[in-house]
């Protein structure tokens, strides 16, 4: 399973420390071109630390990261964006004092093709009509769900090859969660490769092709998402069911 068809992203025994604690203890993980892969696990399992290690936000202790055939271990985040590797951070991280349009413009920071950028802004607005209505308002005035949509829309503005989503459902009302996941599926269908980090294991496995389960910094299970969804251990630990 690790040998996904021509992996776009491959972690090789990646270890990342966070505040002196080794939160990720040498994991192997691969995401193939066009795949939607989820990494699930409890709070504190090391999921976000893994993503931050990939993006260069936290220093890699050992192991390697390969992306599109290149070794990108230790690269800084702004360089990775130019290669099409984009992360939507946890807690959304929109620029609250900037308008929605300005946030989207920052998503397209690495691009210079003005006409195509305008088209992409319209595509994001088509995806999230709410954002279009409020395009000149500051992002801080948006609701949590709308901010999440803006964060995803902003990430799409860079035309990513690989999108890393960190807990997109966190803190959202159920209706919003559904809307966000519909968007994730739509983006995936457009051919964007996605690595999705989620605490909501059921939802994540339902939309994903494959999944990884993380516990205390290590991968404990991996496989087809449909298989994991019916795995008794996963059901017991993450789906809140008693076997």
């Amino acid at each position: 399973m690790i040998d996904a068809k021509s992996p776009l992203l491959a972690l090789d025994r990646l270890a990342v420390a966070y505040g002196g604690i080794q939160a990720v203890k040498g994991i192997d993980l691969a995401v193939g071109v066009g795949e939607l892969v989820c990494l699930i696990g409890a709070n504190g399992a090391g999921k976000t630390t893994t993503l931050k290690g990939i993006c260069g936000l936290l220093p890699v202790k050992s192991g390697g990261i390969r992306y599109g055939g290149d070794d990108i271990t230790g690269r800084r985040s702004f360089e990775l964006v130019r290669r099409g590797l984009v992360m939507v951070p946890e807690g959304r991280g929109v620029f609250g004092a900037l308008t929605i349009e300005e946030n989207l413009a920052m998503g397209a920071y690495i691009r210079d093709d003005r006409a195509a950028i305008r088209e992409d802004v319209e595509r994001v607005f088509a995806l999230f009509p709410r954002l279009k209505e409020r395009r000149r308002q500051t992002a801080g005035t948006l609701s949590g769900g709308e901010q999440q949509m803006l964060a995803i829309g902003r990430a799409l503005m860079s035309r990513p090859k690989l999108l890393l989503l960190d807990e997109p459902s966190m803190g959202l009302a159920p209706l919003m969660v559904q809307k966000v996941f519909e968007t994730i599926i739509a983006v995936s269908r457009e051919g964007v490769t996605i690595l999705l980090i989620e605490q909501n294991a059921k939802l994540a496995l339902e939309v994903s092709d494959r999944g990884y389960v993380m516990e205390s910094g290590e991968i404990t299970l991996e496989g087809e998402a449909a298989t994991l969804l019916h795995d008794p251990k996963v059901r017991a630990a993450y789906l809140g069911e008693n076997p």
Binding site: F78, V81, L98, A105
Partner: peptide, 24 residues
């Protein structure tokens, strides 16, 4: 200007600005 928006973005949250490809 784009540079100006980037300056305000970095002022707000430099880590996220980096994730947009902005060389902080």
């Amino acid at each position: 200007t784009k540079l100006g928006i980037a300056m305000r973005a970095v002022a707000q949250n430099s880590q996220v600005a980096g994730l947009m490809g902005i060389d902080i």
